[in-house]
Simulated assay, not measured.
Amino acid sequence: MIEAVKLWNEPNNMSHWDFGIDKDWSVFSRMVRLAGEAVRAENPKLTRVLGGISPIDPAFIRRMSDQGALDEVDVVAVHGFPLDWNHWQIHEWPERIAEIRAASRHPVWVTEVGVSTFGAEEVQEFGLRRTAELLLGKVDRIHWYSLYDLPKAWPATTRHREAEGSSYYRHFYMGLLKEDGTPKRALRHFADYTPEMGICQWFHFEDHRLDDAVKWLKKLGVKKLRTGLSWADSHRPNYEAWFDRQMSALEDFDLTLTYCFTPGSCGMVDHHTSPPRNVEEFADFCARMTRRYAK
């Protein structure tokens, strides 16, 4: 069921890791080493993936190598959104992959790539087709982000929210399905690229979309799914019941399972992006989740 575990998400993005506190990522690097060791001790067959970087930055990967963070991972991952947020064009995807390959001895996965329908559904339709042309067969894993639009009543996981202007609102239009489950234009093409192309779909705590998402993923022929288990959620009451339900519902997919988000009580500051005071606690969470679900 679980083929890979991913250690954190977008560590070079302030929306996911506060490098104002951890200025040189030394805390992050030590945390990844310990977590990677813990996962390997529980299940040495699992592929361990460094949290996908956004922006794509070979200098960051070289820093991770120099600080030993890559010693306990098997793959590095990148996230790219050239039609929405990145300062490069979609046809440059091969160059971006080549830059990361030159910076690391590890295989490169694309664990988030997507296009919003903020401007028009036709833009996403074009972006899906062009992404498939540029990446399928060139990297071992591609996860399209995402199946569903983010519900407008939920906040996007980004640092500055509405202060980002239109960039913020694009977060709510990344799905192949609208919030209410209505298909968008690009959905009709997605099955042309499965099972080679997977999907990244985050599920919030007790997410009401879980069962419908499973039905759609199977209908689309998706086999490879990336999702997450939140360390922060593990401090909620009855979290194990939700984690068990989520993992049971997803048991038919080849999962890349992301471990991330700091509980407020464990951070240097009370925020999910904060470096933890004790990185061993994150490693322990990774070990417990791996032991429970990666059998």
Score class of each variant (00 low, 15 high):
residue 260 C to S: 14
residue 44 P to C: 04
residue 224 K to W: 12
residue 34 L to A: 13
residue 146 S to K: 00
residue 162 E to F: 13
residue 139 V to Y: 00
residue 101 R to K: 13
residue 240 E to N: 12
residue 183 P to Y: 09
residue 169 Y to I: 10
residue 187 L to Y: 09
residue 92 E to P: 01
residue 35 A to P: 06
residue 169 Y to C: 04
residue 48 R to T: 15
residue 87 H to D: 15
residue 210 L to A: 06
residue 81 F to A: 06
residue 160 H to L: 14
residue 145 Y to L: 15
residue 169 Y to A: 04
residue 222 V to F: 02
residue 243 F to P: 10
residue 143 H to W: 10
residue 158 T to H: 10
residue 50 L to Q: 07
residue 178 K to I: 11
residue 293 Y to Q: 00
residue 159 R to D: 12
residue 181 G to Q: 07
residue 124 Q to Y: 06
residue 175 G to A: 07
residue 20 G to N: 12
residue 143 H to R: 08
residue 275 P to N: 07
residue 216 W to Q: 13
residue 40 R to C: 01
residue 71 D to K: 08
residue 89 Q to C: 10
residue 121 E to C: 13
residue 74 D to Y: 03
residue 288 R to P: 00
residue 272 H to D: 14
residue 178 K to R: 15
residue 177 L to G: 05
residue 160 H to V: 12
residue 198 G to M: 01
residue 173 Y to C: 15
residue 174 M to L: 15
residue 174 M to G: 05
residue 244 D to N: 14
residue 34 L to Y: 06
residue 180 D to W: 14
residue 41 A to H: 11
residue 242 W to F: 09
residue 179 E to C: 08
residue 28 F to W: 14
residue 203 F to S: 01
residue 290 T to D: 03
residue 71 D to N: 13
residue 218 K to V: 13
residue 276 P to T: 03
residue 111 T to V: 03
residue 132 A to D: 10
residue 137 G to S: 05
residue 34 L to V: 11
residue 127 G to V: 05
residue 279 V to M: 05
residue 35 A to R: 00
residue 150 L to A: 08
residue 181 G to I: 05
residue 230 S to T: 07
residue 237 P to A: 03
residue 248 S to I: 05
residue 68 G to S: 09
residue 80 G to N: 05
residue 186 A to C: 02
residue 10 E to S: 04
residue 293 Y to K: 01
residue 90 I to Y: 04
residue 37 E to H: 11
residue 104 S to D: 05
residue 271 H to K: 10
residue 191 A to E: 10
residue 274 S to N: 06
residue 160 H to C: 12
residue 58 P to D: 04
residue 39 V to I: 09
residue 230 S to M: 05
residue 73 V to G: 02
residue 52 G to S: 14
residue 156 A to G: 15
residue 97 I to L: 13
residue 192 D to Q: 11
residue 176 L to Q: 05
residue 12 N to D: 08
residue 235 H to M: 14
residue 84 D to Q: 07
residue 7 L to R: 03
residue 10 E to L: 00
residue 176 L to M: 15
residue 114 G to C: 04
residue 30 R to S: 15
residue 120 A to C: 08
residue 53 I to F: 00
residue 153 A to L: 06
residue 214 V to A: 11
residue 247 M to G: 05
residue 209 R to V: 09
residue 253 F to C: 08
residue 216 W to E: 12
residue 186 A to D: 02
residue 189 H to R: 08
residue 156 A to M: 08
residue 112 E to R: 06
residue 41 A to F: 06
residue 135 L to H: 01
residue 12 N to G: 01
residue 180 D to V: 11
residue 289 M to Q: 12
residue 17 W to M: 03
residue 71 D to M: 06
residue 1 M to Q: 08
residue 115 V to M: 02
residue 138 K to R: 14
residue 56 I to G: 02
residue 46 L to K: 03
residue 193 Y to K: 00
residue 182 T to L: 06
residue 221 G to I: 01
residue 145 Y to G: 11
residue 55 P to T: 04
residue 1 M to I: 10
residue 72 E to N: 14
residue 159 R to N: 13
residue 140 D to H: 10
residue 269 V to I: 12
residue 30 R to V: 10
residue 276 P to H: 02
residue 114 G to Q: 03
residue 3 E to M: 11
residue 201 Q to E: 15
residue 200 C to Q: 11
residue 194 T to A: 00
residue 142 I to A: 02
residue 152 K to G: 01
residue 7 L to Y: 02
residue 83 L to R: 09
residue 136 L to D: 11
residue 192 D to C: 09
